[in-house]
Nucleic acid binder design. Structure first.
Lengths: 115, 115
DNA sequence: GGGCGATACATAAGAGAATTATGTATATAA
DNA sequence: TTATATACATAATTCTCTTATGTATCGCCC
């Protein structure tokens, strides 16, 4: 089992759902472990999703109708594929707009220049 | 009493300390209520600090030696002024660097353009 | 052939940071 | 005179994540 150490764990709070939805929107059908690897790659090793956060989050997104699943047997191993739904796609748009707005607001408050 | 509604409360998590330190660094001696007003102004009404978050956060920063206080009587009302310490100044620099890094990472993962 | 790291799922206990609610009190403007 | 703004504070609750634990397969290397 891996033990992730995130760069700034506090700041990540509240961004997990958005990350999951966005990655699934951009890469089609994906399974949990695959998502962690993709996020690790996109973040250049800075965001390492923990299983304890990942799986409950995926389950919640599914329960909310934002993702749908398909279970596949690979050899003797179960793999659960997730796909983003139409509702999920519209939510991810909204969430990303919110995130951009958040960056803008925070930059004003902290008076930092965003490249 | 005011009932603040933040634009994206989840995202704000973990940024409160940084906001407080930065505002105090930029404006010298300030008291709690004054800070909420300044943050509201800088964020164009998007960040409305709640008292339940603000005061415990200020107390913690003081306990950690990042802020120091001075209590003043204005008429019959108590006012507690906060000033940032040398330690606090070095921390705020670090925190802002972390925040910039966080934005960079998130922008890569969400594949959004930061203006 | 046996052990280790990577793959792959899942849930439960605990921590941390905020919201929401509540309490107290003064100042001011309509 | 009464509502709103100013000004502090703490407690209960909620939410989200970390940490810990559990189970099991796959593939490589010695």
């Amino acid at each position: 089992m891996y033990r992730p150490i995130m760069h700034s764990p506090e700041l990540l709070k509240g961004t997990l759902q958005t990350i999951l939805l966005k990655v699934l929107q951009g890469n089609g059908k994906m399974y949990g472990y695959e998502i962690t690897q993709k996020v690790k790659e996109l973040s250049v090793g800075r965001i390492l999703l923990t299983e304890g956060a990942l799986y409950p989050a995926l389950h919640k997104l599914e329960a909310d109708g934002l993702l749908q699943t398909e279970t596949v047997l690979i050899g003797k191993r179960v793999r659960k594929y997730y796909t983003i739904t139409v509702t999920g796609k519209s939510l991810v748009k909204e969430r990303i707009m919110e995130f951009k707005d958040f960056i803008k607001t925070m930059s004003a408050v902290l008076q930092v220049q965003i490249v």
